[in-house]
């Protein structure tokens, strides 16, 4: 069996206390929220921090506040997020993304901040220590080479977060706090296209909240490809957010998930649609343009050429959905899940 390696456990009660502990030794300290990403990685010795700073005791991180949009604490669980009527009503794409993360158990544990900062994934990395040792490791941990493309100077592990592409499409920002102060960056700038240094978050910074701008006039949708309907990481995804004036698109963003080491903004595809009515022809042109920038690698589930082709379909489905087409049958075919709202959430509305 796989035991956790030893570590020093710290349970701060305030963000300031957490930032101070993190600042003591940022390179060897990791933040623990839901534990659903960090603890498996620690068991497989992919991540071996000497200190773990647990954020669970900081109650202010688990709140969702109204304002000009929504301010979502980084410690809000994914179950809490999808149970929130404001999210369901105003940010359907975010609801669809969060509701398709993992399983009910894992959503009860995993947090929005954790999903945003989710470690990148790869066939050659997400393995136990002995497996990785048998191939002399890879550059992401303990080794020198990238087994996905042996001449690659950088790690090609895949961004596998569902909420990040959607939050990026919605124009969300994140607040980062350290003992040096606080800064707010767009979600788009939180990521870098490098499987190892995929976050621009500094080692001493804590993601404390995610602010989603007001949704007035905006529609959003998230489409995900995965092996199993029950649960799986995305192997391709499309997040679309658009503001309409009648039938005309005033503003639109398309962000692809799981086809790069970061959420990938398809700006040229989005530009094709801005200022236009969403005709079938334009949707197809934009979907083709978006698929053109997808760079899936052969390091996760499914065949990569097919994944790239599927990006075109996912973008097309998302655009049809925000246009108002009835996509329920198609969504059920792909997600193989009703994506039902728990009774408690419906009651809250």
């Amino acid at each position: 069996m796989m035991r956790l390696p030893g570590f020093r456990y710290r349970a701060p009660r305030t963000i300031g206390e957490a930032a101070a502990w993190l600042a003591e030794n940022p390179a060897n300290t990791m933040l623990l929220a839901g534990g659903t990403d960090l603890l498996p990685n620690m068991k497989r010795r992919q991540q071996t921090p000497s200190t773990v700073v647990a954020l669970r005791g900081i109650t202010s991180l688990s709140e969702i506040h109204n304002g000009d949009g929504l301010a979502i604490g980084s410690g809000v669980t994914l179950s809490h997020l999808i149970g929130d009527a404001r999210v369901r009503q105003s940010y359907p794409g975010l609801w669809q993304a969060a509701a398709q993360v993992a399983t009910p158990h894992l959503r009860n544990m995993g947090t929005v901040g954790g999903n945003l900062c989710l470690d990148t994934r790869c066939t050659y990395y997400d393995q136990n220590y002995e497996w990785r040792k048998s191939i002399d490791f890879c550059m992401k941990r303990d080794g020198k080479i990238c087994w996905v493309a042996t001449s690659s100077p950088k790690c090609l592990a895949v961004s596998s977060t569902d909420t990040a592409p959607m939050l990026q499409a919605l124009g969300a920002t994140v607040t980062l706090v350290s003992i040096r102060g606080e800064r707010i960056v767009p979600v788009a700038e939180l990521f870098a296209n490098d499987g190892m240094r995929y976050l621009t978050r500094q080692p001493d910074e804590i993601v404390t909240s995610i602010r989603v701008p007001a949704a007035t006039g905006w529609r959003s949708a998230y489409w995900k490809l995965r092996r199993r309907g029950a649960f799986d990481f995305p192997v391709a995804a499309a997040a679309v957010a658009a503001r309409f004036d009648g039938a005309r698109v005033v503003d639109l963003r398309i962000v692809l998930g799981a086809v790069s080491s970061r959420p990938l903004s398809a700006d040229r595809a989005a530009a094709l649609l801005t200022g236009q009515d969403l005709s079938d022809e334009l949707i197809e042109s934009a979907a083709v343009a978006a698929a053109g920038i997808a760079k899936p690698m052969d390091n996760t589930d499914f065949e990569l050429v097919w994944r790239k082709k599927m990006v075109r379909s996912l973008v097309s489905h998302a655009l049809h959905e925000i246009r108002g087409d009835d996509m329920r049958a198609r969504r059920h075919q792909l997600a193989r899940q009703e994506l039902l709202i728990p009774a408690s959430a419906s009651a809250a509305r």
């Binding site: 647990a54 669970r56 894992l106």
Partner: peptide
């Protein structure tokens, strides 16, 4: 929740 991913101290 999954008890394999909950630290006992928590």
């Amino acid at each position: 929740v999954l008890s394999c991913l909950v630290l006992a101290v928590e």
